[in-house]
């Protein structure tokens, strides 16, 4: 079976006045239909940029400088604007981090749902409205009919994120990319929203790329994990294995010394030191200044992502 999404050797650069900086460096992964993948790593690792690169919506002055993105068998990374537009919000939907900022404050919920459908389907407003209503019911929105005529500021954060999820479902996409969809919400609401998202993906056989800091959520929701560090994937494998038997020293640090005690709401562990900024990534393995196992070779040669024991891919000389 061909994979639904295949990202190969992706490189993203930002054209700054001081020159081009590389934010994503040779990232590869793939997603099967209905598969759910977690993308984790410290702040600035390049998770969001990777997510946006898939629908070619990296904020300026960023651009894809190398690699390919195959979606449903077609290479889409060099698609024209119009061809890409037809994929966005239609075949691949995104959910942003902060639902308070995501909806346009001056238009009603109904307006913002209907226009999305009509951007992709040739249908009347009332047909679109009916589908919008159906999706609001799907996300268990209380009194859905009323919501269509309300403005974003009349709804709570949790309700707004439900609306966003409903919008992302409108065109029955193949993949949803959710960039920290619950970080901005109350702790009590977070679990609700995550459960909803997981349930919907399972029921509708949708692929999910979940960007998050929450290890508990990743292990609960996803089937595989890619761990990012300084623009590279340094560990990649089935969630079960990565969470309980991590290989890469960085992942081991993130998960902590007691595997098996991963509950929802548990954040990644702090590792001493800081991730290098993109302008001064150390030679060799980018993790070497913080790594206890670092040896001579680690400062000279960049480790490549390769298969280690029990089917995990990792980029480390010492394992």
């Amino acid at each position: 079976m061909p994979s639904l999404l295949e990202v190969r050797d992706l490189e993203v650069k930002f054209a700054l006045r001081s020159g081009n900086i590389k934010a994503i460096d040779g990232v590869s992964f793939q997603l099967d239909p209905g598969e759910r993948m977690g993308l984790v790593g410290e702040s600035g690792a390049g998770k969001s940029v990777t997510g946006f690169a898939i629908i070619n919506l990296i904020s300026k002055p960023g651009f894809i400088s190398r690699g390919s993105i195959h979606f449903e068998g077609k290479e889409i990374s060099a698609y024209s604007f119009e061809k890409m537009r037809k994929i966005r919000g239609n075949r691949i939907s995104m959910i942003f981090q902060d639902p308070m900022m995501t909806l346009n404050p001056v238009y009603t919920i109904g307006f913002q749902m209907i226009e999305t459908l009509r951007a992709h389907r040739d249908m009347s407003k009332s047909e679109a409205r009916a589908i919008a209503l159906e999706k609001l019911k799907l996300v268990q929105m209380p009194s859905p009919e009323k919501r269509l005529d309300q403005y974003p500021h009349e709804l709570s954060g949790g309700m707004r994120q439900r609306i966003i999820i409903a919008i992302s479902l409108l065109a029955d996409p193949a993949i949803i990319i959710a960039d920290e969809p619950t970080t901005a919400l109350d702790v009590t609401i977070q679990a609700e929203i995550m459960d909803l998202l997981q349930e919907l993906c399972e029921k509708q056989k949708m692929g999910l790329i979940l960007i998050t800091h929450d290890l508990g959520v990743v292990s609960q929701v996803t089937e595989k994990i890619a761990v990012m560090y300084a623009g590279k994937i340094i560990e990649y494998g089935p969630t079960e294995t990565v969470v309980h038997h991590p290989v890469h020293p960085y992942t081991i640090g993130l998960i902590g010394s007691i595997p098996g005690s991963i509950e929802p709401g548990r954040d990644l562990k702090q590792i001493p030191g800081m991730m290098p900024t993109l302008t001064n990534i150390p030679p060799g393995c980018a993790f070497n200044p913080r790594c206890e196992l670092a040896a001579d070779i680690c400062t000279r040669q960049t480790p490549v992502l390769e298969e280690k024991q029990n089917g995990i891919m990792a980029a480390c000389h010492m394992k």
Binding site: L57, S59, G89, S93, M94, F96, T102, N104, T116
Partner: peptide, 12 residues
């Protein structure tokens, strides 16, 4: 963000 989201929805 809401403009970025408008692009992500595939609007013209």
């Amino acid at each position: 963000e809401y403009i970025k989201y408008a692009w992500a929805k595939g609007l013209s």
